[in-house]
């Protein structure tokens, strides 16, 4: 049940939200649309769902030309960032909504709702109102509600964005396990690179309305197509005109390694097992280096050090444009 997006353009007034998007979302996999806020990923998801219409281009869901189908006929499950729970209905009624709309027999609806509540671990809350649930529970209810109609595709729009960090991490694990159980084609919109790297089979990096790169988490991390993708997937720093990850810099107290650059430690921050160093070199005023506490033993602010990218580490030529802020 794949999704094909072809030549989609979308403008809001003068603002170009999406520019010539071509995308294939494979059946049964979990695909993440990753990118900074305002980059167009949510708009793309809403176009797939039928909640927005593309100015040009087509959307095909499971071989069915869906470009002009209204949302209610696309058979998609949509989960919203702010839950969009039906506040006046109990949890069970919320989940049953799509089935009741489809006029399924009562016994079947009851059975299916029970199964789904079991699946999202909310059986004991069936008769509560959404306002009596925590944020995480509400989002699990919303997921069960979306799954109830056996959608061709499940679309999640920043589903964990409104939750606090700990719950977000739990739900992320849970979502991945759930997906391994149900195998429904899933598209997840997120601005959190860690979330995308952790749960997705395939990541589509979207920025400024364009697709920057499509690939598995490993491909993206190990072979970023450009400096934007690299800097968006995790922290990077500039050393000698190259973008490199802070944990991929070797630091020594002499110049024995060829190509190493001298510098002075200007600041040290210790966070748990990790130590973050800020080093000033002749060419770069603020190089970031991270290492474990053990490796950092004996270093102190003001010490002279030599820096070099670790052998085999990924580097990408830094452009003169200002470094895009990595979210996360």
């Amino acid at each position: 049940m794949s999704i094909e997006v072809k030549g989609v353009n979308k403008n809001f007034g003068d603002f170009v939200a999406l520019e010539d998007i071509d995308l294939h979302i494979p059946t049964g996999r979990l695909t993440a649309l990753l990118g900074p806020s305002g980059g167009g990923k949510s708009t793309l998801l809403r176009i797939i769902a039928g909640l927005e219409t593309a100015d040009t281009g087509t959307v095909t869901i499971e071989g069915v030309e869906a470009t002009h189908l209204p949302a209610r006929k696309r058979n998609v499950g949509f989960v919203f960032q702010h839950y969009a729970a039906f506040k006046h209905m109990t949890v069970a009624k919320n989940v049953a909504f799509g089935l009741e709309i489809r006029k399924r027999p009562k016994a079947e609806v009851r059975k299916r709702v029970e199964e789904l509540l079991e699946l999202v671990h909310l059986s004991q809350f069936a008769h509560r109102l959404p306002s009596q649930l925590s944020g995480g529970q509400r989002q699990r209810m919303a997921l069960a509600r979306a799954l109830a109609v056996e959608p061709n595709v499940l679309l999640l729009d920043e589903p964990f964005g409104a939750l606090d960090a700990k719950v977000r991490k739990e739900l992320r694990d849970w979502l991945r396990r759930l997906h391994d159980e149900v195998h429904v084609t899933t598209v997840l919109v997120t601005h959190d690179q860690e979330e995308a790297l952790e749960v997705a089979d395939q990541i589509v990096v979207i920025n400024d309305g364009r697709v920057e790169q499509i690939g598995t988490p490993d491909e993206l991390y190990d072979r970023p197509a450009n400096d934007f993708v690299m800097s968006f997937l995790g922290p990077v720093t500039t050393l000698g005109g190259q973008l490199v990850r802070p944990h991929d810099i070797d630091l020594s107290d002499d110049d024995k390694v060829a190509g190493s650059v001298p510098g002075v430690i200007t600041r040290m921050v210790r966070i748990g097992f990790e130590v973050r160093l800020h080093v000033r070199t002749d060419t770069d005023p603020d190089v970031h280096v991270t290492m474990t506490r053990t490796h950092a033993r004996g270093l102190e602010t003001g010490a002279k050090v030599w820096l070099v990218p670790t052998k085999g580490a990924l580097t990408v030529p830094a452009l003169d444009s200002p470094e895009p802020a990595a979210a996360g």
């Binding site: 909640l51 209204p70 209610r72 949509f78 702010h82 039906f86 209905m89 709309i101 979306a146």
Partner: peptide
């Protein structure tokens, strides 16, 4: 109440009348 719940009802297959009757009306009751 915004349009969130109404949009959610649409994605679940409800037409305009069903959305009004089952979602909007109870909310503004």
């Amino acid at each position: 109440i915004g349009t969130d719940q109404e949009v959610a009802a649409q994605t679940l297959g409800a037409n305009g009348w069903q959305t009004f009757w089952r979602v909007t009306l109870p909310a503004i009751k």
